[in-house]
């Protein structure tokens, strides 16, 4: 049985074992540029938003590549890049304990409170 689905692949933490060979000698690439996550602010007043990832040797190159790959049509006024390995993320398995406690606290929403019509716009 193939059990590779049991492996957890964290976004940005991709295992880098090499693929097998064949007739064409694919030269082993020792230069493995790290993966970077790219965040773009589309205009002032808005948050930077994650838009994808790319490979680059260093931060400066990551910014330059992000400019070429993600803002060819004026999609951004500011770019953040961060090496993917520095991102810590939640796991889907933890989603229950992390997020479910909010589900039964509906009194945190304004719509929970029934008020007389006279104060309707409160």
């Amino acid at each position: 049985m193939n059990i590779s689905f049991l492996k957890k692949f964290y976004y940005g933490d991709i295992p880098d074992e090499k693929g097998g060979g064949s007739n064409y000698e694919a030269k082993k690439d020792s230069s493995n540029w790290p993966l970077w996550e790219v965040f773009i602010r589309s205009k002032n007043g808005l948050d930077h938003k994650h838009c994808g990832s790319l490979h680059a040797a260093d931060a400066k190159m990551a910014i330059e590549n992000a400019r070429d790959v993600y803002t060819r049509r004026m999609e951004g006024v500011s770019i953040w890049v961060v090496e993917s390995k520095y991102i810590t993320a939640t796991n889907p398995e933890e989603a229950g304990e992390l997020f479910e406690p909010a589900v039964d606290k509906i009194y945190r929403h304004p719509t929970f409170y029934q008020l007389p019509d006279e104060v309707n716009h409160m």
């Binding site: 492996k7 692949f9 991709i14 295992p15 880098d16 493995n32 990832s53």
Partner: peptide, 8 residues
């Protein structure tokens, strides 16, 4: 790449 194969 998010599915676990490297670019190389």
């Amino acid at each position: 790449e998010t599915l676990g194969q490297s670019r190389d």
